[in-house]
Amino acid sequence: MLKPLRVVQYVNQFFGQLGGEEKAFVEPHVKEGPVGLGLATQKELGDGGQVVATVICGDNYVGEHLEEAIDIMIELMRPYKPDLVIAGPAFNAGRYGMAAGALCQAVQERLGIPAVTGMYNENPGVGLYREKVYIIETGSTSKNLPEIIHRMAKLGIKLVNKERVGKPREEGYFSHGFLVNELSDKKAPERAVDMLLAQFRGEPIEPELKLATFDQVKPAPAVKKLNEANIALVTDGGLVPQGNPDKLEWMAATKYVTIDISERDHLKGGEFYANHTGYDTSEVNDDPMRLVPLDVLRELEARGVVRKLNPTLYSTTGVATTIEYSQKIGSALAERLKADGVDAVILTST
């Protein structure tokens, strides 16, 4: 018989039975043995484990002093020599979820033991901590609490015993975003056809790879009066001045660069080139206006079709750029365009 597991439970003021929002400023403190929700954890553990202490902290306190509260709670837990920490579940409580995620990460890193928490999928703690800690998926309220506690404890015990942890769907936790190699007794074409047939039959399928998803953005309103608009040119074709002074990456860009076009109505080969590994750049290098239509925009500006061409051209390299960096570059550029007073953008992509 293994010796009983030593578990420390973390709860907020409500699940620690101190009270509601009026007790949300309570500082971190510890009580011996199971308290409040800790009793449910103790019941689940039975003889296999013991809730040796319950750490309680008010949600406002932890919300306003996250790092400090985590430091204190870790030191409150340490003397109890826990094998496992169970945090929450926090359901859809944002402050509580953030605290539970941060605490689990700190427990793993500083106490070197596993920690498990539970949250509703819209809790902000899920997005922030799902890749770092095990978060069992819960509903938005404390319905089904015994089942949630059961899953948290079961997963925690597996982690302590270093047993193989099943897939997110099997164990009920939020995927960490890893791909795990598995041997299948069926060849890939058979699995693909099986999946296709299952779709024909209207049966659920489980793709082996998660497809990238793109969020949708509400389209910006149309330009009402073009002749009053400041139009900016942007390209992801990697255009840079000779010598690439701002060191734009030729792939997997992490930034955009600026090119001053205020004194120019043409872009000439030799003065600019495309620093981009994703296409044959020879035509653009001979005449960069095959990438950036500066001459035509200057014509339209002279004729008053558009009020003004933005004096700065923005350029980045759109090859093997991660979605994350594209978003970062895009939002940084959006700020810059706003500061320039730009009304609309023409983006040329290779």
Binding site: F214, D215, V217, K218, P219, A220, P221, A222, V223, V234, D236, T316, G318, S326, Q327, I329, G330, S331, L333, A334, E335, L337, K338, V342, D343, A344, V345, I346, L347, T348, S349
Partner: peptide, 14 residues
């Protein structure tokens, strides 16, 4: 990138 610019309320023709 176009999307992030549109998110800021600036229309983009790509």
């Amino acid at each position: 990138m176009a999307k992030e610019i549109e998110r800021a309320g600036i229309p983009v023709s790509q």
